[in-house]
Design a protein around this nucleic acid. Structure first.
Length: 339
DNA sequence: CTGGGGACGGGGCCC
DNA sequence: AGGGCCCCGTCCCCA
């Protein structure tokens, strides 16, 4: 739905999306489905609602608990060890061999796995890990290295906890990875099935798969409100802001995806034009527009038509030219040799 | 049709 | 990780 009425200064239509509230109101704790691995908690800062509190981090590794059978919930009051030495875990979390790595268990936590032979995790001295194995900032927080010995190939999936640990020590990136990714282990350490690189932490592996490995496992983040697909969560978050438009103009109500866009818009109300042309007295509210303007002072126009050699100050003018009015292109379209 | 201004989106970089 | 900022590009409008 196009609406030109909101801002008298605007030339562009404002797209008003229906049902966009769902973008902001989706629960961050929805269980990750295999066929729907996209993140639910995008933690967009909604500037139109400044009272919204940032969400706490979700969980942290604490203690190891050995469940008696693969499908039996772990006993949360039984701890085999605590990674940071003495001192009881302040929250009844658990490390379970049925879970992908030291995975906390909250009281109303639910979990699932396939009923195949499972890995045995053993504590590994930090000194045995080479510096190159320390991947990412989350790894530096890792108090304990774990080695998993698999009895057979196994697939481990998790479901998200339905509670939040108040004493979380996990890094936010690790928590994010947990909250967004189905976990799969295929080797003793955290190994990429595509390139066989191994990582000492789950976080290291997921970062590798997400950003560096050109495997089919490379994460793709797609927008649920349009067809856009991004390779990073950050890019998707940025894009979703174009749907939620959290930055609203108090004067005309027009909304923007980013604060600095709103800043630029406010200049259309105030008339402020801080970007002055060094060649003439004109000034502009937008730096890009100043740059485009300064092209008009230049004798050499940057954009030239490859067919007729006509030059233009802006790419958009060249595109328009090539799309319709270039005589050379018209000749080419009539079947003349293209040289 | 052309040239230019206004407004804004996306990616990337830096802090 | 997230926000601010810059750059590039695009779209729309108007003279």
């Amino acid at each position: 739905m196009m609406d030109y009425s909101m801002c008298p200064l605007k030339k562009r239509p404002v797209i008003i999306e229906e049902n966009l509230d769902s973008v902001k109101e989706e629960s961050p704790l929805v269980i990750a489905e295999e066929d729907d691995p996209q993140p639910e908690n995008l933690s967009l800062k909604d500037m139109s609602n400044p009272e919204e509190k940032p969400k706490p981090k979700l969980w942290t590794p604490h203690t190891m608990i050995e469940p008696k059978s693969p499908l039996e919930p772990v006993n949360m009051n039984t701890s085999a060890f605590t990674p940071w030495g003495t001192g009881a875990a302040s929250f009844p979390t658990a490390f379970s061999p049925y879970l992908p790595f030291n995975f906390p268990v909250a009281p109303n936590y639910s979990w699932a796995r396939n009923p195949e032979p499972y890995p045995i995790y053993q504590p590994l001295s930090p000194s045995r890990a080479s510096p190159t194995e320390r991947i990412g900032s989350a790894d530096s927080d890792y108090p304990l290295r774990l080695q998993a010995s698999l009895r057979s190939r196994e697939d481990l999936y998790y479901t998200r906890p339905t509670s939040i640990s108040p004493n979380s020590r996990a890094s936010s990136s690790e928590a994010e990875d947990l909250s967004t990714t189905k976990i799969r282990k295929t080797s003793a350490r955290y190994q990429c099935p595509e390139c066989n690189k191994s990582y000492s932490t789950y976080c290291g592996l997921t970062k590798h798969q997400e950003f560096h490995c050109s495997s089919i496992n490379k994460k793709q983040f797609s927008c649920k409100n349009c067809d856009k697909v991004y390779v990073s969560l950050g890019a998707l978050k940025m894009h979703i802001r174009t749907h939620t438009l959290p930055c609203k103009c108090d004067l005309c109500g027009k909304a923007f995806s980013r604060p600095w866009l709103l800043q630029g818009h406010l200049r259309t109300h105030t008339g402020e034009k801080p970007f002055q042309c060094s060649h003439c007295t004109r000034s502009f509210a937008d730096r890009s527009n100043l740059r485009a303007h300064q092209q008009t002072h230049s004798d050499v126009k940057r954009y030239s038509c490859k067919t007729c050699s006509k030059t233009f100050s802006r790419m958009s003018l060249l595109t328009k030219h090539e799309d319709g009015v270039c005589p050379g292109l018209a000749v080419m379209h009539m079947g003349m040799p293209q040289h």
